[in-house]
């Protein structure tokens, strides 16, 4: 088992409680799905999750009880991806790492798109847009959680998600203009455009 984690300077002798293990186990399916969405490969995702579990266990003492566990563990996975896999120059090129999906998704107006085609478009998004879209649009994280995981401002996260949607629509041949984008939340300002009085 390759281990790239630097050893703790002060080994934490406190053993993580069984509840900690259970919380990690509960996140594994989501960590794998997120890792696969980032890397374009389920196999790479499993390597990433393995590394993440090791780090989480060894640094269990750095998790503050009462804070967001999901954000904590996803931050570890994401940092691992960017520090190890990206550094090796891996770029997602295709979706061969996903098993060929036969699922079709309704695209409205009697049209359908294949999940396989959707994934090809998804991996062509810039990474920061792809991860933002997955966290918000697929995992259902809040903008606050996603921003915490990526260490960016909430506004940055919102703009990444919007740009991701526009780019993805273009890649899918479903053009979407910025004017047609709904506000991130149901619009709170519904003021009609007033005529300008000279």
């Amino acid at each position: 088992m390759s281990e790239a984690t630097p050893q703790d300077k002060r080994p934490d002798e406190q053993r993580p409680a069984p509840a900690f293990r259970d919380r990690l186990i509960a996140e594994i399916p989501h960590l794998r799905a997120f890792g696969a969405s980032l890397s374009g490969s389920m196999q790479l995702a499993d390597d990433l999750v393995q590394e993440t579990l090791l780090k989480a266990w060894r640094h269990a003492g750095s998790f503050t009880e009462g804070t967001n566990f999901k954000a904590w563990v996803f931050t570890i996975l994401r940092n691992t991806y960017y520090s190890i896999y990206r550094r090796r120059g891996r770029e997602v090129q295709d979706t061969d790492g996903f098993h060929a999906s036969q699922v079709a998704v309704s695209a409205g107006q009697d049209s359908h798109m294949d999940l396989a085609d959707f994934r090809k478009a998804l991996v062509r998004l810039p990474e920061e847009q792809r991860e933002a879209l997955i966290m918000i649009g697929a995992m259902g994280l809040s903008y606050e959680e996603a921003a915490e995981i990526c260490h960016v401002a909430i506004g940055t996260m919102k703009s990444r998600v919007n740009r991701a949607r526009i780019r993805l629509a273009d890649l899918l041949g479903l053009p979407l203009h910025a004017e047609a984008l709904p506000a991130a939340k149901p619009p709170s300002r519904m003021l009609p455009q007033l005529p300008v009085v000279p």
Binding site: S37, L115, G137, A138, R165, L176, P182
Partner: peptide, 20 residues
């Protein structure tokens, strides 16, 4: 625009659910 958004939303969920 909303229809396109909905289609993308459904596809994202389908993508994720299959992996999860």
């Amino acid at each position: 625009g909303h229809k396109v958004q909905d289609a993308i939303g459904r596809a994202l969920e389908a993508h994720y659910v299959e992996l999860v």
